[in-house]
Amino acid sequence: MKLKKLFNPFAYFSEITLLIIGILFIIIALFSSPFFNALHTGIFQVAAGKTTSWKHLLMLLSGTLVPFLLLFIMALFINKKTRWIDILNTALIARIPCYVCIPLIIFAKKIFSVHYNDPKAIPISSWINVIVFTMLNLLVFAFSLVLYYNGFKTSTNARKWEIYVLFFVVLIIADILTLIINYHFILP
């Protein structure tokens, strides 16, 4: 039951609880991102770098609002009864694994960037670190994806597999759009 709540909180918690938790984690990410020199450039991407607090906030907002808007438009085509707050909560909650694992992601990226030009120079201990952190990063990505999927499924009550293929396409489009907005309009 606890695992079910962890992987699909949308089925058990009220919209207000989820909204408060989602906003709380955005605030935590807003303060922790500059501390770890992390930039939330896409929905699933975290890059190493420095910027102003305002730009951090705008990037966090674009990473939440872009998938929210695209998924909500899609949800209305599937089920007209879909509430905007349920999709917004999906976009907020599904990003939490990325916020929580900022130190992990940044550490993994540092290991990669140090040895990027000469992979032969990587000592075995660093290889183990690289493998472990890559696996953990993949788990974070998978967990985030599961939360997006469960949130969307609970909000729309969609059943057909074709809808979920389209859902993943829309999510990829949202990710690309977020990257474009962040790299071309917010970061420069």
């Binding site: 089925a11 058990y12 009220s14 919209e15 009864k81 509430r83 349920d86």
Partner: peptide, 17 residues
Amino acid sequence: ASQQGVSYPTMRNRMDD
């Protein structure tokens, strides 16, 4: 929904089904 400890969309989905 609150009586059964589930969220509103879960209950609405059950209702729609």
